[in-house]
């Protein structure tokens, strides 16, 4: 579905955000990119969906192939039309448009003009939105805004769905809901999903394959079961420590050498 190889990205021609990132997303799977703040996860998604130019970013090296075709030179709206949807971090709904108008804006992703049925599908999946469809979207609750962001992405019947921290700023109950919907979308509609998360436990629970990023590089990758057993991953990302006592000095993570950085 998607193949990224040796991607280098600079912002403002100075700040290197990605340093040779490669990964691959097979059809119908849920793949996660994990990592701390500033690791370059969002940059990777922005590069894939070709909106870096809006942020003064630039791909200097590498290749991105979507369904076998290079994405370079295709504008973001064309990529969306060819079946790639992207739910951005912080939801980014159009806050001064109504809920319905947000969906109308998203209907540009469809090849033909949207029919009533297309909107109904979204409202079916996200029932709370229907009752508030004429309200200004800026006044929705955080969870409803996330639903709207999802709904907008799903309206175009994407084959590949990129998601940037869907759990951000939501109550735990809502997070559970959202992730149930994600796996439902994956199974029922056979949509391939690339998920960026900071919440490692969630990512481990729902994905098939995981890439871990640190300062612009992919440092470790593997199937969920394999990574779950890895002691470094356990310690740094899953919050599972060894039983033995450690000196406080050793716990300071910046003093520790991670195996993958050596």
């Amino acid at each position: 579905m998607l193949k990224v190889s040796n991607l280098n990205v600079y912002y403002h021609r100075v700040i290197q955000a990605l340093k040779g990132v490669s990964f691959e997303i097979p059809d119908g799977k849920i793949i996660s990119l994990l990592g701390s703040n500033g690791a370059g996860k969002s940059t990777a998604l922005n590069a894939i969906s070709n909106i870096l130019s809006f942020q003064n970013g630039e791909i200097t090296e590498g290749k991105i192939e979507f369904n076998g075709n290079s994405t370079f030179g295709k504008s973001a709206d064309k990529l969306v039309k060819s079946g790639m949807a992207y739910v951005r971090e912080g939801r980014k709904i159009f806050s001064d448009l109504t809920v319905n108008e947000n969906l109308v804006a998203a209907s540009y992703a469809l090849e033909k003009s949207a029919k009533k049925n297309d909107y109904e599908q979204v409202y079916d999946l996200f029932k709370p939105l229907y009752s508030r469809r004429k309200e200004v979207a800026g006044y929705l609750s955080g969870g409803e805004q996330q639903m709207l962001a999802f709904g907008r992405a799903l309206l175009g019947n994407p084959k590949l769905l990129l998601m940037d921290e869907p759990s951000l700023g939501l109550a735990p109950v809502m997070v559970g809901e959202i992730f149930k919907i994600i796996s439902k979308i994956n199974k029922n509609l056979n949509t391939t999903i690339l998920l960026v998360e900071q919440n490692a436990n969630l990512a481990f629970k729902f994905s098939d394959y995981i890439y871990i990023m640190e300062s612009g590089k992919i440092v470790i990758e593997g199937k969920v079961d394999k990574l779950r057993k890895d002691s470094d991953v356990q310690e740094f990302y899953l919050g599972v420590g060894n039983d033995s006592y450690k000196s406080y000095r050793d716990i300071k993570h910046y003093k520790r050498r991670k195996r993958w950085l050596s």
């Binding site: 809006f54 973001a76 108008e101 209907s107």
Partner: peptide, 25 residues
């Protein structure tokens, strides 16, 4: 019309509008 929505969406957030399939340029 629908194009009015596209213009307003672009005004609010250009990159997100592009991600909705709106031809921003």
């Amino acid at each position: 019309s629908k194009s009015g929505v596209a213009i307003r969406a672009t005004a609010t957030d250009q990159s997100t509008a592009a991600l909705m399939g709106i031809n921003v340029s």
